[in-house]
C-alpha cells in the first residue's frame, strides 16, 4: 500500500485556497528557501536521536531498529524537537495511506469546499496525490496543489487530472538570485508557469517581496506579470522574518516588508496586465 509522510493535516483552513479547506502538509521539500517559515518540513528525519532526550513530554523514543518514533498522544506540541533538529527535519511525521488520509477528509467533508495538498513539497508525493484526488473528487470535493514548481508537470500531468490546478510559488525569476534564495536556479518553476497557464491549470501565483531588494523584486514581478496576464490571481506576499532560520534572517533582514513597498509591486504587476495582482 502506498504511504506518504504527512507532517500535519489542518482540518479547517481559510488560507490554503478558496473557501474552507482541509490542508494536507507532506514532509520533505526539493528546495531550501532562505525565508522558509517551516524549515522542519524540508528534510526527512535521519533518526540521529538528538531530539529524543530533549523531549519534555517523553513523546519521542528510539526503537530497536534505531529509528526515532513519535507518540502523538504524549506530544504537547512544544516544538522543542524541531527547534533542536540540525537537519531541518521533524520527528513528528506520520506515514499515512490514502485510506487513512481519506478518513480524516471524510470527517471534514460536510464542512469544507475541498482539499489542498501542501508541504514541504507535495509533488514529491505525486502518485499518492493522484490517488487521493480521485477519492476526494468522488466526495464532490475540489483539489488544489500548493507547489514550489520543481515538479515536471508536463512530463507527468496525471496528478492534474482531478485538480483545479496549482497554486505556484515563483520566488525568483533570475537564475543567480534564485540559486541564492532557494538553492535552485528555478528553470523548472518558470517552465511550469508557462505550461500550467497554457493548459488552464494555473490557479494562482505567489511572489514574496523582500525589503530593499528592488532589482530582484522588480525582475521577478515583471517576469510573472508578463507571463500570466489576467489569467489568474497574483498574490504579492510580504516577507516576514518571524519563523525564518536565524542564519538567513541575517541575510534577508530582520524587518518585514512594509505594505506600501509591497503595494508598489502589485501596482507594477497590474500595470503590466496582471490585473488580479494584490498584496496579502
Amino acid at each position: 500500500m502506498k504511504k506518504a509522510p504527512v507532517n500535519k493535516i489542518i482540518q479547517f483552513s481559510n488560507v490554503d485556497g478558496p473557501g474552507n479547506r482541509t490542508a494536507i502538509f507532506f514532509q520533505g521539500c526539493t528546495f531550501n528557501c532562505m525565508f522558509c517559515h517551516n524549515p522542519e518540513t524540508i528534510n526527512m528525519c535521519r533518526s540521529c536521536g538528538i531530539c529524543v532526550k530533549s523531549c519534555p513530554a517523553g513523546a519521542l523514543s528510539t526503537g530497536a531498529d534505531g529509528k526515532v518514533s513519535w507518540d502523538s498522544v504524549k506530544c504537547v506540541q512544544c516544538d522543542t524537537c524541531i527547534k533542536l533538529c540540525p537537519h531541518d527535519a521533524s520527528p513528528r511525521v506520520t506515514w499515512m495511506s490514502v485510506e487513512e488520509v481519506m478518513q480524516q477528509i471524510k470527517r471534514c467533508a460536510p464542512y469544507i469546499d475541498g482539499i489542498t495538498c501542501s508541504g514541504g513539497e507535495c509533488t514529491l508525493q505525486a502518485g499518492f496525490m493522484t490517488e487521493l484526488f480521485a477519492e476526494a473528487t468522488k466526495l464532490g470535493k475540489t483539489c488544489l496543489i500548493d507547489s514550489n514548481g520543481s515538479f515536471d508537470f508536463e512530463r507527468d500531468p496525471e496528478v492534474l487530472k482531478n485538480s483545479l490546478g496549482v497554486m505556484l510559488d515563483v520566488k525568483a525569476a533570475d537564475r543567480a538570485w534564485s540559486e541564492t534564495l532557494i538553492s535552485d536556479p528555478g528553470d523548472m518553476v518558470r517552465k511550469n508557469l508557462v505550461f500550467l497557464k497554457g493548459i488552464g491549470k494555473l490557479f494562482e501565483v505567489r511572489t514574496i517581496i523582500f525589503p530593499g531588494r528592488d532589482a530582484e523584486n522588480e525582475f521577478t514581478v515583471r517576469y510573472v506579470a508578463e507571463k500570466i496576464g489576467d489569467s489568474c490571481p497574483y498574490k504579492i506576499i510580504r516577507y516576514r522574518p518571524f519563523g525564518v532560520r536565524e542564519r538567513y534572517q541575517k541575510l534577508l533582514g530582520e524587518d518585514e516588508t512594509d505594505i506600501e513597498y509591497a503595494e508598489r509591486y502589485a501596482q507594477l504587476a497590474r500595470n503590466l496586465g496582471a490585473s488580479k495582482a494584490y498584496v496579502v
Binding site: 479547517f12 483552513s13 481559510n14 460536510p110 464542512y111
Partner: peptide
C-alpha cells in the same frame, strides 16, 4: 482576524453543521 477577508470560508462550516 484573517477571517474578515475570507467570509466564504465560514459559510460552508455553518451550512455543514446545520445539515448535520
Amino acid at each position: 482576524e484573517t477571517y474578515i477577508k475570507t467570509p466564504e470560508a465560514i459559510l460552508p462550516i455553518i451550512k455543514g453543521s446545520l445539515s448535520k
